[in-house]
Amino acid sequence: MIKRRKFFEAWFKALGLSALALAVGTLVLLFGALLIDGIGRLDWQFLTSFPSRHASQAGILPAVVGSTLVMLVTACVGIPIGVAAAIYLEEYARRTWLTELIEVTVTNLAGVPSIIFGLLALGLFVYMLGLGSSILTAGLTLALLILPVVIVTTREAIRAIPVQIREAAFALGATRWQTVADHVLPYSASGILTGIILALSRAIGETAPIVTVGALTFIAFLPPSPMTDQPPYLSFEWLMSPFTVMPIQMFAWVSRPGEDFAANAAAAGLLLVGMTLAMNGLAIYVRYRMRKRVSW
């Protein structure tokens, strides 16, 4: 009897282990192949050049700049709105059927395929608002995409704060806003930040919605610089500039015939994976650092 149960236990253990090996193995294999193909192309010339007909002279500069600027817009729009919405839902909103509905909708939005967001953006930003196929459009689209993720993770981080802490603040005569600004936000900052970074690292790899709003695949110039030599020294012309982003550049290279372009694609992929991993690593570090300080 016991033997049979032990046998079952060992069997399940083996099953679990092989499932894990399969998952990790695939990942390692994928990353390894990317590394072997791409590492040779990943040099300074590649990082600082524009795309070219000749694979060996092509580079990823516009895509890196494009990705960075799009992420900047996404962060500036998506984070404040997402965090504010989460605070409202958690701290201010009364429980009614309306807030219940909003909650369900937000959670479901996180599961909507990203290309749907692209379609929405094409209709709304590109045509209705006339923003064109610009960095601004792409940034806003991705901001919409990460909004549900930011809201959900922020709410979870806020909910982790014990009610006793809030009551302590209220008992001292604090208003709701003072409680939020002085206690709720600072204590949940690590959780919120982790959610934000993870959301951004997902957004940076998004391709479908960006293609839908009309990103270029071959671009030989950079957006106008945000700094100018005339007052007021700041320019927002770059917002309306055409652009490309890294996953699209990668896709453009993959779809070309020839070994050399495949190497370029692998190198671009390597860079993208590296950036995503770096962002995830940052998220883990931030959480670790801030968790140490806040406890109750």
């Binding site: 006793q164 302590a168 603040a169 008992a171 001292l172 206690h183 109750w296």
Partner: peptide
């Protein structure tokens, strides 16, 4: 003013804990 069943200091410095009521005012 109220003191609760379970000690519930803010995860801030001792000084800031005591000063919070004053800052609110």
């Amino acid at each position: 003013a109220m003191v609760f069943q379970k000690p519930n200091p803010f995860p801030k410095s001792v000084y800031e804990n005591v000063a919070y009521g004053l800052r609110v005012r």
